[in-house]
Design a protein around this nucleic acid. Structure first.
Lengths: 186, 205
DNA sequence: GCTTTAAAAAGTAACGT
DNA sequence: ACGTTACTTTCCAAAGC
């Protein structure tokens, strides 16, 4: 009996920050190796870090979005690399800019197959979205924590929309007890 | 004062014209799909509700009309797949799907997932398969769905595989290609669902 | 609403061989 | 009949259209 909480894995962390300085993205794009900048397509410049792996979207305003990291520590490490790269280009970067985690994507495994049809009825059709013709996962929105869960027939699930790693744990707990109450986790 | 009054008339007329357009589109698509009048009426009611709840803002009239028809077909127990619906609509499949999910949620339609058995009579008759095959296909769907095999699977592909299996069992074989064309799924999907279904049924052949 | 970025889940589709 | 690639869904920030 594996506790589903022990199967939780953070797959992606999205965070935002800012260097407190406006940027000339055209010149940053020239000087920064591996930078992708196409203002016609998107106003942000894309810069990828290898270790840890992530993608940073850098904007003219100096605000930055970091995505793709596997932990909040990796987000800080990735952004530290981005800040240092910008400093190498003689750009002033605040000492340690505030980094705000905006979204954490997690996967987990309930360890049993799920009858999504029964779960759709059990959780209440008004509380879920399940359209297997369009997507195999059942979409379940929780109020507390405020996250969205995707449940699959295999018993695997995805939790997204949370801002703290604990959000996913609480969500898994609630989902497990809800399904147990309904007698649908067997 | 007069201006405001004229404007009200103008918007009222425009709204009336839009409603007429939507209803005629529903009628046109319903005819092309060959669904009964009752479905068109249900679709019209859904469309009017969407209009009343102001769900059309930011969306196309055609998209909402098509989604209302898709929902009505399901509600009346004679579903058409998004693929089939998109063939008679000027709106693309993806947009119909997302608009349907939106109005379904906002109007609280509480739509149940489509039962693959609902596709059996129509697909079988297009394939000119006997009543016996239909009954067998329904049995396969019923039994394997109970065992949880249906979770996450597309209803059309699931029905297609059961019909293919039933046609073999009843010696009225149709090829995977023939069934795939009628159900608008790929042979790969039929093969995958078929393998799971016969295994769950304990059939070897 | 759209554009871009990342990531997982599982099903389906469209390629090429 | 394989295998690979790619698309569907959820979340979020950013700036601009």
């Amino acid at each position: 009996m594996t506790d589903p909480k022990d199967t939780i894995n953070i797959e992606n962390v999205v965070a935002s920050t800012g260097i407190g300085q406006e940027l000339d993205l055209q010149s940053v794009a020239m000087d920064l190796e591996g930078a992708d900048y196409d203002p016609e397509q998107f106003p942000g410049l894309v810069y990828r870090t290898q270790n840890p792996k992530s993608a940073a979207l850098i904007f003219r305003s100096g605000k930055i979005v970091c995505t793709g990291a596997k932990s909040t520590d990796d987000v800080h490490e990735s952004l530290r690399i981005v800040f240092d790269k910008l400093r190498e280009l003689q750009i002033q970067v605040n000492e340690d800019p505030e980094i705000v985690v905006q979204n954490i994507v997690t996967s987990a495994d309930l360890g049993r197959n799920l009858n999504l049809n029964a779960i759709a009825i059990g959780l209440g059709l008004e509380n879920i979205e399940y359209e297997p013709e369009q997507f195999p996962g059942l979409v379940y929105r929780l109020d507390e924590p405020e996250v969205v869960a995707l449940l699959f027939g295999s018993g695997k699930l995805v939790i997204t929309g949370g801002k703290k790693p604990e959000d996913a744990e609480h969500a898994v707990d609630k989902i497990v007890s809800r399904l147990e109450d309904l007698g649908l986790l067997e | 004062r007069l201006r405001k009054w004229q404007e009200r008339i103008r918007t009222k007329d425009a709204g009336e014209r839009n409603l007429q357009f939507a209803l005629s589109e529903i009628d046109r698509m319903a005819s092309a799909l060959g669904v009964p009048r009752s479905v068109r009426e249900v679709a019209s009611v859904i469309y009017r509700r969407a209009l009343k709840e102001d769900l059309i803002r930011g969306r196309s009239i055609e998209g909402v009309a098509t989604s209302a028809l898709y929902a009505a077909c399901r509600k009346e127990g004679i579903p058409r797949s998004l693929e089939e619906i998109s063939e008679v609509s000027r709106v693309e499949r993806k947009e119909i799907g997302r608009t349907y999910r939106y109005i379904s949620q906002e109007l609280g339609l509480e739509m149940r997932p489509v039962d693959p058995k609902k596709y059996v009579p129509r697909f079988c008759s297009e394939l000119e398969l006997s009543e016996e095959v239909q009954t067998k296909a329904n049995e396969i769907i019923e039994k394997t769905a109970e065992e949880g095999l249906l979770s996450g699977k597309s209803p059309t592909g699931y029905a297609a595989a059961a019909i293919y299996a039933a046609s073999l069992l009843c010696n009225e074989k149709k090829t995977q290609r023939e069934v795939a064309d009628v159900a608008q799924v790929t042979e790969v999907t039929i093969r995958n669902r078929y393998q799971e279904q016969i295994e769950a049924m304990g059939i070897h052949g």
